[in-house]
Nucleic acid binder design. Structure first.
Length: 406
RNA sequence: GUGGGCGUAGCUCAACUGGUAGAGCGCUUGACUGUGGCUCAAGUCGUUGGGGGUUCAAGUCCCCUCGCUCACCCCA
C-alpha cells in the first residue's frame, strides 16, 4: 500500500456516498421550503478574511488553519468555516438584504482527529442576513429544529445570549474577578481559561469546579436592556413554536464575531464532539468587513457528525446486464442504447470473456436481469432474457424485452 | 499540543507462561468448451506497520518511530 489518505480525511465509498447524497438532498429541500437559496464560494480565501472575522486569538486562527503562500506571495487559507466567505461574497456582489442564503461544502481545520471531527469536514449552513429581530433568530433555530426532527435525531437545544460588546465587556471582567477570587480552588484547565476563555469554565467537568458554577455570575443576568429584551423575546417565540430549549449560561461560540443569541443542538450519545448544529447572531461582522452595518443570524450543521447518527442504506437499482456470445456487439450496443433511453442502467458484458464469466459479472453487479445475445436465437430474431433472481429464462424479441423491462 | 487503546493475508480475526504464523470470507481455475448464485475439488494469500535491542530462539519482552483510533484542549 503505497499511498494513504492524509490524516483527518475520509474516502466516501459508493455506498456511503449515496447516503450522503440522499441526506444533502433532503436538507436542501427543507431549506428551500423556507426560502433559502444556495450560494457557492471558493474553498480558499485571503487569510486576512478569517483572521479578522474569527478572531486573532482563537484556536482556529492561532493553530488550526491551513494557510499557504501562493506563487505571487499572497497568503491564502483553506476556509475553516463558511460564514465569513459568504459575507464577503454578499458585500462584494452587492446582494440586497434581507436575504436568506445557504451553503454546502468542505471546511478545513488542522485539529487532532477524533470521532466526529476530521480535518476536512462538511457543513451545510444557513445565513439569514438583514433582519435584526429575534423573530429571525427564531426562524433559524426553527429550521435547525425542523431538520433534527425530520431525521428523528434525539437531541437537545441549548441557547444563551452573549450580549453585545457593551454588555459583554463588563460581564467578562466580573466573571474574571469571580474566577480569580477562587483561582486556587479551580482545576488547572479552568485557571488557564480565566484569561483565555472564561466562559468555558461553565463547561468544566471537574468535580472541584462544580460548586462555583452556581455562584458564578451569568451573562444573561448582566445583559444591557436591548440585548436582554432580544433574548426574552426569542425565548417567547420558541415557546410559542413549542420548541423545547435549555438555557446554558456557559454557551459561547468559538468565533469572535457572534453577538447576542448563540445556540447549539447537541447529541450526548455522540461523545466528545456532540454538537451537530451550532450557530448564532453576528450583527457586527458585515460592518467589520466594510459593508453597511447589517445584522445577521445563521447556523452550520456538521454533516459527518450528523451522519454518524443516521444509518440509512440506499438500495441502488439493479442494473440490466447484456451478455454477448460470439461477439454480437452491435446488437448488444443498440439494445443498450435503447434501454438507456428508457432510463435504465445497462452494463455490457465483455465479448472477450466467456458467457460464464460474463454472467458471473452480472451476478456480482447485482443485476436483476441478464439479456444474452447468441447467434442461434438471433436467427429467429430473438434474445434470451434471464431473471437473475429466480434463474428463469425465455426467448423474446428485442421489442418484447424492452416492453418487459420498462 | 497532552493522554489512553490498537497495528498479524485484500477483509474479519486466531496463535497458552517467548519455540520458527493459522482459520473463515474473498479471489483464480476446474467439475459445467452457450448460463451466475449453491455444492465439491484445487490454487492464491504474509518483509506479523517500520527500525533497533534482549535471547539459542521474538507476532509475543524492552526502546524508538510511523499509522489508526478514542479522549482532553477546542470546535460543526
Amino acid at each position: 500500500m503505497r499511498y494513504h489518505r492524509v490524516k483527518g480525511t475520509k474516502d466516501l465509498l459508493p455506498e456511503e456516498a449515496s447516503t450522503w447524497r440522499w441526506f444533502e438532498t433532503e436538507i436542501r429541500q427543507i431549506l428551500e421550503l423556507y426560502g433559502y437559496q444556495e450560494i457557492r464560494t471558493p474553498v480558499f480565501e485571503n487569510t486576512e478574511l478569517f483572521i479578522r472575522s474569527i478572531g486573532e486569538t482563537t484556536d482556529i486562527v492561532e493553530k488550526e488553519m491551513y494557510t499557504f503562500k501562493d506563487k505571487g506571495g499572497r497568503s491564502l487559507t483553506l476556509r475553516p468555516e463558511g460564514t465569513a466567505p459568504v459575507m464577503r461574497a454578499l458585500i462584494e456582489n452587492n446582494l440586497k438584504t434581507p436575504i436568506r442564503l445557504y451553503y454546502y461544502g468542505g471546511m478545513y481545520r488542522r485539529e487532532r482527529p477524533q470521532k466526529g471531527r476530521l480535518r476536512e469536514f462538511f457543513q451545510i449552513g444557513i445565513e439569514y442576513v438583514g433582519n435584526p429581530s429575534p423573530f429571525a433568530d427564531r426562524e433559524v433555530i426553527e429550521i435547525g429544529h425542523r431538520i433534527v426532527t425530520h431525521f428523528k435525531i434525539d437531541c437537545q437545544l441549548l441557547i444563551n445570549s452573549i450580549g453585545c460588546p457593551d454588555c459583554r465587556r463588563p460581564y467578562y471582567s466580573r466573571l474574571n474577578t469571580f474566577l480569580e477570587k477562587h483561582r486556587d480552588d479551580l482545576c488547572p484547565d479552568c485557571r488557564r481559561r480565566i484569561i483565555k476563555n472564561p466562559m468555558r469554565f461553565f463547561d468544566c467537568k471537574e468535580e472541584r469546579c462544580q460548586p462555583f458554577k452556581r455562584e458564578a455570575p451569568k451573562i444573561i443576568e448582566h445583559l444591557c436592556s436591548a440585548c436582554s429584551e432580544h433574548y426574552h423575546k426569542l425565548k417567547g417565540y420558541l415557546e410559542k413554536s413549542a420548541i423545547p430549549y435549555t438555557e446554558h449560561p456557559g454557551l459561547a461560540r468559538g468565533l469572535d464575531y457572534y453577538t447576542r443569541t448563540v445556540f447549539e443542538f447537541v447529541v450526548p450519545e455522540l461523545g466528545g464532539q456532540n454538537t451537530i448544529i451550532g450557530g448564532g447572531r453576528y450583527d457586527l461582522l458585515i460592518e467589520l468587513f466594510g459593508g453597511n452595518p447589517t445584522p445577521a443570524v445563521g447556523f452550520a450543521l456538521g454533516i459527518d457528525r450528523t451522519l454518524l447518527l443516521i444509518k440509512k442504506r440506499i438500495e441502488p437499482p439493479r442494473p440490466i446486464f447484456i451478455a454477448q456470445i460470439g461477439g454480437l456487439y452491435q446488437e448488444a450496443r443498440s439494445l443498450q442504447l435503447e434501454l438507456h433511453g428508457k432510463g435504465k442502467t445497462v452494463i455490457l458484458g465483455d465479448p472477450e470473456m466467456s458467457l460464464k464469466k460474463q454472467l458471473r459479472q452480472a451476478d456480482r453487479l447485482n443485476c436483476g436481469w441478464a439479456i444474452m445475445i447468441g447467434s442461434e436465437e438471433l436467427k429467429k430474431g430473438k434474445y434470451i432474457l434471464r431473471d437473475m433472481v429466480s434463474g428463469e429464462q425465455r426467448e423474446y424479441t428485442g421489442k418484447e424485452i424492452i416492453a418487459r423491462l420498462t
